[in-house]
Design a protein around this nucleic acid. Structure first.
Length: 271
DNA sequence: CGCCAGGCCTGCACGC
DNA sequence: TGCGTGCAGGCCTGGC
């Protein structure tokens, strides 16, 4: 599943190819994503210029001046560069065709992704308006995390995955960051000290930055927009490592269920 | 064949 | 009454 580092890697890979370029056409082959793809999207996009490619949480924002193409990769989505001759496969639901001949293609077998259009400030879109601070931005700090967790009785791992608390932290990076911070994922959020909140923020940032550097990877078959496989998964300390030794102390990594999600942690290193 | 992961939204129940 | 919170359900398909 593309997590924030994969989305950021995709953004960085695509931006140089797209920014300043004119869109010749857009092709929608399947309208049934998590929300219906707008019927008039091809008309809106044809002839538009992409002024910027930004990211908010896991949403990609293609600034087209008169409006913004909002794209989310969901669970299984992948955006990559094809061309006119690339064969279209079963789950290739959306194409952005540039005048240069470049084709940016969305493939999303599970169709949890989104392709939307929003006039005006994209951050005003209902799906984006309430999102918490970017985890890599200075506004996300220990003081913020401490403040917003005071009223939260739920487990810290669950709260970290709440996009209103901080944007774009999914299951994998919640697990990894808590391991690095030495915090048990079941800890009630409201019980975390100011200091531990600060450590956690620092470790979230560190984990995401390392993953972005590694090119991003969380889906087993993830391929970045440049066509190269990312390799951060080889650096996972706990995720999907149930029963394997903790790389710090050798204790077996434990797997539990929190909500409907798999949680992995070291019972010795995380208190 | 049936089950299930997984992001993230919506809708509902509940308590202050 | 209203709001924040917690929880369950739903969308999908590939892989077991």
């Amino acid at each position: 599943m593309p997590e924030l580092p994969e989305v950021e890697t995709t953004r960085r890979g695509l931006a140089p190819l797209l920014v300043g370029k004119r869109i010749k056409a857009a092709v929608v082959r399947h309208h049934g994503l998590r929300q219906p793809v707008p019927r008039n999207l091809p008309k809106l996009l044809a002839g538009a210029t992409i002024h910027n490619l930004a990211r908010r949480g896991k949403y990609l924002l293609f600034d087209c001046g008169k409006g913004t193409l909002i794209l989310h990769l969901g669970m299984s989505g992948r955006l990559w560069v094809a061309n006119k001759a690339t064969p279209v496969e079963k789950h290739d639901h959306f194409d952005l065709v540039l005048e240069s001949g470049t084709v940016v293609r969305l493939r999303d077998p599970r169709r949890f992704g989104l392709v939307l259009w929003h006039k005006g400030d994209p951050l005003g879109h209902p799906l984006l308006a309430g999102i918490g601070p970017e985890p890599l931005a200075p506004e996300f700090d220990g003081a913020w995390l401490h403040r917003v967790t005071r009223s939260r009785d739920a487990a810290i791992k669950h709260v970290l995955m709440d996009g209103h608390v901080v944007a774009g932290i999914g299951n994998i990076y919640a697990n990894e960051a808590l391991y690095r911070a030495g915090i048990n994922p079941r800890t009630h959020a409201s019980r975390l000290s100011r200091n531990r909140c600060a450590v956690l923020v620092e470790k979230i940032r560190e984990t995401l930055e390392l993953a972005i550097i590694a090119g991003g990877s969380s889906l087993r078959d993830y391929v970045g927009s440049d066509g190269l496989a990312g390799n951060f998964q080889s650096q996972f300390m706990v995720y999907d490592r149930a029963g394997k030794p903790c790389q710090r102390c050798g204790t077996k990594i434990r797997e539990i269920r929190q909500g409907q999600r798999s949680t992995y942690y070291c019972p010795r290193c995380q208190k």
